[in-house]
């Protein structure tokens, strides 16, 4: 489809807006983990559907980019399909479901299992960028706390977890310390994905549309999940392999099969699951 004929500017946003967002992105990359305010625009989708991520993607998209969009690891959910179609329509770019072929991956709630590479960019959709908010609702105060590196409160939250559950029960949006300076909310990815953020080769960008914040992790940034000395950070583990592809060590979703309580566990990353199946089939031949 010819983009100019649709009446949209390339990737929907006008050039001034993209420039403004790119400035915010540059600042965010310069100060890893720091939340940069930006003038978030109204997008043709409701808040909570990834308006932040979409604006970031729109600002960095080039005509030759290949875009992949995942929602909870899957390429085929409504949210993922809509956003992919949105950019196909407004930017005329190529899209893919294959992680290794994508140059930009916009994600909600997961990081792909496959290790990302230096030429790739991961864009996170973020609902609440402020990790301190649940204990300190005042934005003026949390900003000051970031500025002065007052992060004791984060551990108060983890302390409460342990005292109530015997372990740190936070399983997603698990707070991290970036380059020993800023505490950052990694967006609601499972804590299983936290270690992947550490020294990742790809650039990671985070956009929160409703909250008007952008933050970033440049390639090879040190990212440490907060913990206690006697309650170290641990990721989820499953005893069984994926019921579809049979691999061990990926993040599994629980799928209810019927009304009698039968269930199965399978890879949340659909591309990973498919490629594992293909590899297995090739090996069998």
């Amino acid at each position: 489809m010819n983009v100019s004929s649709t009446g949209y500017n390339f990737a929907y946003l006008n050039e001034q807006t993209k420039r403004m967002i790119r400035r915010a992105l540059l600042k965010a990359v310069a100060i890893p983990g720091y939340q940069v305010p930006f003038a978030s625009r109204e997008m043709p989708m409701p808040y909570g559907w990834g308006t932040g991520g979409v604006q970031v993607t729109a600002s960095i998209l080039k005509p030759d980019d290949v875009l992949k969009v995942i929602d909870q690891g899957a390429d085929d959910t409504t949210n993922a399909v809509s956003i992919r179609d949105f950019f196909k329509k407004t930017a005329g770019i190529a899209t893919t479901e294959v992680t290794k072929d994508a140059t930009i991956i916009q994600t909600r709630h997961r990081i792909p299992e496959r290790e990302l590479e230096a030429n790739q960019i991961l864009v996170f959709q973020v609902p609440i960028p402020e990790p301190l908010r649940f204990l300190e609702p005042r934005e003026t105060e949390t900003r000051k706390m970031h500025a002065l590196e007052e992060y004791g409160l984060m551990h108060v939250k983890l302390y409460e977890d342990i005292s109530r559950n015997g372990q740190i029960a936070t399983t997603y949006a698990y707070p991290v310390l970036v380059e020993d300076r800023y505490v950052m909310d990694p967006s609601p990815v499972p804590k299983f994905d936290n270690p992947k953020m550490h020294e990742m080769a790809a650039l990671q960008l985070f956009g929160a549309g409703r909250e008007m914040r952008i933050y970033a992790l440049p390639p090879f940034t040190r990212v440490k999940s907060l913990d206690f000395e006697d309650h170290p950070f641990e990721v989820q583990k499953w005893d069984e392999p994926c019921a579809i592809c049979g691999t061990i060590g990926s993040y599994l979703d629980e799928v209810i099969l019927d009304n009698s309580g039968n269930r199965m566990f399978c890879c949340s990353d659909t591309d990973h699951c498919r490629s594992e199946l293909e590899n297995a089939a090739e090996a069998a031949q």
Binding site: E150, G152, L153, H155, V156, Y159, I162, F228, E229, D230, H231
Partner: peptide, 13 residues
């Protein structure tokens, strides 16, 4: 514990 954690205590026990 909050004041302790705010000055760097990181041992839950």
């Amino acid at each position: 514990g909050e004041r302790l954690m705010s000055v760097g205590a990181r041992h839950y026990g």
